[in-house]
Design a protein around this nucleic acid. Sequence first.
DNA 1: GACCAGGCACATC
DNA 2: GATGTGCATGGT
Length: 220
Amino acid sequence: MSTSKKEQLENIYQLLYRRFGKRNWWPADSPFEVVVGAILTQNTAWTNVEKAIANLKRADMLSALKLYRQPVSVIAELIRPSGFYNQKAKRLKLMVKHIVESYKGSMSNLCNKETTELRNELLSINGIGKETADSIMLYACNKPLFVADSYTYRVFSRHGLIEKETGYDEIQALFMDNLDHDTNTFNEYHALIVELAKNFCRTKPLCDACPLSDLPRYID
DNA sequence: GACCAGGCACATC
DNA sequence: GATGTGCATGGT
């Protein structure tokens, strides 16, 4: 009688939670800041995103309405430290355009939209892929969705909970089919996986040292 | 100086 | 549909 996926996922959550505690994610002061961070962190270390967001704050530009009025070139210069800055400036501007023109610049208006509709809408914006959309939905709008990032794939595939070539939707489904659809749980779980990766995957390539199955060793 | 980081879109086959 | 490539800074 082997342990079910559900039990495994719940056990891992408990281990991570006991080891790292409540993460208080997303690290942002407002829902709109979550949107900005979600776009800027695409394939980028968070420390670089922090610099870019600090620039936006310093310039008093961290609002949809203010960014809406700025040319892409100005946004690009402010977010330069986050890398891919020309591309991200365009993406950010497109997202901001959507928030302003469809929701009067209000994140709460945007978040009011029904989950599936909102997700499809976000995905239709150039530069917003599945992970970015889900991060916005979960961490800015408190919708109960699991964010399946590359850390999730690395850690869970390496420890045999998912196959080698599992795609985003399948990974997300593993969590969402086996856990209660609770915003707080999905929030913490993803944040805890990132914390695990930051603590144990940094120095070793391809996450060789991600000790998911060895967690008790680190917890004890 | 290489390698990597909380992706995504697009070209090409 | 799958595979490859550009995008770019800053930390290790």
